[in-house]
Design a protein around this nucleic acid. Structure first.
Lengths: 201, 201
DNA sequence: TACATTTGCTAACAGTGTTAACTAAATGTT
DNA sequence: AACATTTAGTTAACACTGTTAGCAAATGTA
């Protein structure tokens, strides 16, 4: 079975090459510029070879949606420091979210920019659930630390996520890019959000 | 000059027809499905006729971005009732924003979905400024009513807008549509935002 | 060596935005 | 009325796009 293994390896290698070259194109020219023929030229294979590894073009972009949310979820999880004050953790999460969107803007654009078309996949994307779990953890911790048991955590996570993405979208919309460091507006909004977690209504 | 007037009228009529048929296509199949040839078929003219009235396809979509923000700004302005309590006005604005996005989802998708490509135009779009002016008015009123002079209104408008759009985007992202009435999550978030306008820090 | 399978390609189909070059009709001028 | 000129509208092409059917060459198996 050594031969078939080698084949499988070569197969996987080509698939990785497709992914790598696709990403190179996206990084250079944006995801709108990704075309099957450009990929084919980059991997130095003919067009139909790509369809041996991906059902269609959308599947390639979906791959980047998935890895994007995966990377984001990991980044968020990595700043979750249970020994730090809970409110600080939420701030760190927000900061990490901003930094991800700012430094991986091309990735962020695919994740939300394509968005609606490939929506069926969204609810099944485990990475998104993972992300919201991380948020949930931090938000819950704030509630507990403040002795505030009346919070609807699910509701707050959605609000948190909406706020985070809202700022990113408007930032992209207005300036076509996201500056490196979170703005005062953003930090203020996050602080306000945290405030609503602490204070019982 | 009657003859040239008639020509101008016919010209405008065809332009309107292009817009109308384009919109019909978008409403039926989404803005991704809009193509020059489909428009040409619908207006019963040949393809190059369209280029007599619009520089390119993007210009047609940009037209809908503009009219979209115009309609949104008008809707928001129409619920601005100076004799009502200021906080209630902000709530009404948020509700109106939601209702617009829910009832004119195709329009809303073009306004933000295309977004990044045609970004240069954004800052010049007077309709967006008009929208933020309406928001500014209501937010300012809350601050005054609460005797809170420490608010940075510009900052709060941006936060407000980011929150509103953030919710719409996540709603579209998760369910591919926006339900008719604002969710409890949304109303709660808006109330929290208003809370930060009232309370001095 | 003869057959079967895999590997990869060419070439096409149907669609896209965009434009150059043309015809036919309407207009203006003598 | 006859000619010139502008205008309205067309056809047909170019250079792309995603996708796939069919074929040739290389490989593995008997």
């Amino acid at each position: 079975m050594k031969a078939t293994d080698k084949k499988a390896e070569q197969n996987a290698a080509l698939k990785n090459e497709i992914i790598a070259q696709s990403w190179a194109i996206i990084e250079e020219s944006g995801w709108q510029a990704l075309s099957i023929r450009r990929i084919a030229e980059a991997i130095e294979y003919s067009v139909p070879m790509i369809y041996k590894h991906f059902e269609n073009k959308e599947a390639i972009l979906e791959h980047f949606i998935k890895t994007g949310f995966q990377a984001l979820a990991e980044r968020l999880a990595s700043v979750l420091n249970p020994s730090a004050p809970a409110t600080e953790q939420v701030q760190e999460l927000a900061k990490a979210y901003w930094t991800f969107a700012a430094s991986q803007t091309k990735h962020y654009e695919i994740m939300y920019g394509l968005g609606m078309p490939s929506c069926e996949a969204v609810n099944n994307v485990a990475e998104i659930k993972q992300m919201s779990n991380v948020m949930m953890q931090a938000i819950q911790a704030v509630g507990e630390e403040a002795g505030n048991g009346t919070i609807d955590h699910y509701l707050k996570v959605k609000t948190f996520w909406s706020m985070l993405h809202g700022f990113m979208a408007i930032e992209l919309f207005s300036h076509n890019q996201i500056q490196e460091a979170p703005t005062a507006t953003f930090r203020d909004a996050i602080d306000s959000f945290i405030f609503t977690l602490i204070n019982k209504k």
